[in-house]
């Protein structure tokens, strides 16, 4: 707007609009947030000034009908303050959503930006929210709630043992892997051995 009201908030909203489609968070806009706060406080002061003048320091009641110009001005400041607050809320809310998303689903790019993009309050939230998730997970110990929400498929794979490995311990017992044997085995139990070349996956 010409008088500048809302312009700083709009920067936050533009930033949020970008964030909507990112899998990480851009840096927290400390300066812009502070400017919006300042704008709100200035508007509040201006409003008080207008009211003071009209009511003679609070001695007379303010009648909007008698002072439509002042009333319109007061309404403008009031509305822009609500708008600014809404933008601040939406901006912060969106970032918290991303942080929660990270707590549940992880994400490399998000992990990389935690130290640089989150401000102190957000880091504190991340820490506390992780604690909260841990507390909620507790009673559901069998489910591993933060594990993948992709439907399970191909839990077991066919492998051939290329080099003698010996016995390996798995969640459900000991399995011996001797050279040239073929097994149908839990993929997660042997991922490392496949990568190291002890086993080959058969398609």
């Amino acid at each position: 707007m010409e008088n500048g009201l809302g312009n700083q908030s709009n920067k936050l909203i533009q930033d949020s609009r970008r964030t909507l489609y990112l899998d990480y968070l851009p840096p927290y806009q400390t300066d812009t947030v502070n400017e919006v706060i300042r704008e709100i406080r200035t508007a509040e002061r201006e409003s008080l000034g207008i009211l003071q003048a009209l009511t003679n320091g609070g001695e007379v009641a303010f009648n909007p009908m008698e002072h439509p110009s002042e009333a319109s001005s007061l309404l403008m400041f009031h509305t822009s303050n609500l708008y600014n607050k809404r933008c601040l809320m939406a901006y912060h809310n969106l970032r918290l959503r991303s942080i929660r998303q990270y707590c549940w689903n992880g994400g490399k790019r998000m992990e990389a930006c935690i130290d640089t993009s989150l401000n102190q309050a957000e880091q504190e939230y991340l820490f506390r929210y992780s604690e909260l998730v841990a507390a909620y997970k507790g009673p559901w110990v069998d489910l591993d709630l933060t594990a993948s929400v992709v439907p399970p498929k191909n839990l077991f794979i066919d492998v051939r043992v290329l080099k003698d490995v010996g016995d390996i311990e798995t969640e459900f017992g000991t399995i011996s892997l001797t050279k040239n044997s073929q097994l149908y085995i839990r993929a997660t139990d042997v991922e490392r051995l496949i990568a190291q070349g002890y086993l080959a996956r058969l398609s």
Binding site: I50, S72, S73, M76
Partner: peptide, 8 residues
């Protein structure tokens, strides 16, 4: 009405 504060 004339609106104080609305302009540039």
């Amino acid at each position: 009405v004339s609106i104080p504060g609305l302009g540039h």
